[in-house]
Computed example of a mutant assay.
Amino acid sequence: MWFFKFLFTETARLLRSVEGRRLLWLALQYGDRPRNQSVDVSVGSYRFRVPDALSFVWQYREIFVDEFYKFTATNTNPVIFDCGTNVGTSIAYFREHYPTARIVAFEADEHISATLQNNLRQNQISGVEVITKAVWTNDKGIWFGSDQADSASIFSQTDRKLVPSVRLRDYLLRETRIDMLKMDIEGAETAVLTDCQDALAHVQNLFVEFHAYLDHPQTLAEVMKVLENSGFRYYINTSQYRPAPLVNHRYKGNDSMDLQLNIFAYRN
Rank of each mutant, 00 (worst) to 15 (best):
I80S: 02
F81V: 09
I112P: 01
V87W: 00
I103E: 00
G145K: 10
V104W: 08
R102F: 04
I125A: 14
T137Y: 09
I142Y: 02
G127T: 14
C83G: 06
G84I: 07
P99Q: 13
L116T: 10
I131Q: 03
A105C: 13
G145H: 11
I131P: 04
S90Y: 00
I91H: 01
F94S: 08
N123L: 01
G141V: 00
K133T: 03
C83A: 14
G84M: 06
G145S: 12
A149H: 12
L116H: 05
W136F: 12
Q117P: 07
H111K: 13
N123V: 01
S113Q: 07
N86R: 07
I80A: 00
H111R: 10
A114F: 10
A92L: 00
E110S: 14
G145E: 11
Y98H: 02
R102S: 11
F81Q: 02
G88W: 00
G84H: 07
A101T: 08
Y98S: 06
G88F: 03
F81G: 09
N118R: 15
D139R: 13
V128L: 00
W136Q: 08
G141C: 07
G141L: 04
G88L: 01
K140D: 11
P99I: 04
V135T: 06
N123A: 01
I112K: 02
P78S: 08
I91P: 00
A101R: 09
S126H: 12
W143N: 02
A134F: 07
N118V: 11
E110Q: 14
E96D: 14
V128N: 03
D139Y: 11
S90A: 14
F94E: 06
G127H: 15
V135D: 01
D139L: 09
P78R: 02
D139V: 07
G145N: 11
F144E: 11
A114L: 13
G84D: 02
S126N: 13
D147E: 12
T132G: 13
I142M: 11
A92Y: 00
R95M: 09
T100I: 08
D82G: 00
F106Y: 15
D150M: 10
V130C: 15
T137H: 10
R121T: 08
A105K: 05
V128T: 07
T85H: 01
P99E: 13
T137S: 13
D82N: 04
Q122R: 13
Q148H: 14
E110D: 14
H111G: 04
V130D: 05
I91T: 09
I91L: 09
S113A: 15
V130H: 03
D82Y: 08
R121W: 10
